[in-house]
Amino acid sequence: MTPPILKVENLRIAFGGVAAADGVELEIAAGEFMAIIGPNGAGKTTFLNLCTGYVKPATGSVLFEGRDITGLSPRAITRRGIARAFQIPQLFAGHSLLENVMLALAARHGIRQVLAPLDREAYRVEGRALLELVGLETAAGQPVSELPEGMRKLADIALALALKPRLLLMDEPTSGVSAQEKYALMGTLMQVLKTEGITALFVEHDMEIVRTYAGRVLVWDSGKVLASGAPEAVLADERVIRSVVGAV
């Protein structure tokens, strides 16, 4: 049996007495496309923060490809192969979209270059190809601060993809994206993830997106995993409807 790409054991953390993760146990197999759903404040984003080192757990461990990454910095975890896209896009406002992607590419290839320019042929070609993949090639030269929210969201995902991660964690990838663009974005994203062999975990509030694209759904409630399984079964579960879907 293939070992899980991500394994979480007895993960606990609380903020001011409110549990955001309360003894969470979880395994994600390589190649999975898993959605996390749950009401606001359930601890979904905190879980991503725990997995990527932004928050250290009080107890428990996070294993990536069998190795313990608990307590490591976001930088160290990123270097091991986990990339992240944020709920609020995290971009470099002073740079153009292509420069943002080129900076991510430079980070992957080694940032410690002090005399060769960032703006070089190899990065330009790879950067433009990546932007084409997420449908942003026409905005390559634009400052990211001038892009609409949906495009900024895609740009944030493009930065994560530029790192060629083995596991991608996304926090509400379709929020801020127009209703008609959501499915195009997710379709493209699924194709890229499959082609590149990237396992993904995404927090989502749109149940139709979850139903259409997730291979497995994890329901989060008050820091605990309430249910887990195939979307059809989980989304039809009485408890889930009552505590989560009804609250969304």
């Binding site: 990527t52 910095s73 976001p74 930088r75 990123t78 270097r79 990339a83 992240r84 995290q90 971009l91 470099f92 406002a93 002073g94 740079h95 420069e99 900076l103 991510a104 430079a106 980070a107 992957r108 080694g110 940032i111 410690r112 270059q113 002090v114 005399l115 060769a116 320019p117 960032l118 703006d119 930065l159 994560a160 790192l163």
Partner: peptide
């Protein structure tokens, strides 16, 4: 030399520190 440095990945990352430190760390920098 300083101009070359400003345009290099390290120099651009330096300018990026002002706008988004969190993203830089999440790029492994």
């Amino acid at each position: 030399l300083v101009q070359l440095y400003f345009r290099s990945p390290m120099g651009e990352a330096l300018a990026a520190v002002e706008t988004n430190e969190v993203r830089l760390e999440y790029l492994g920098v």
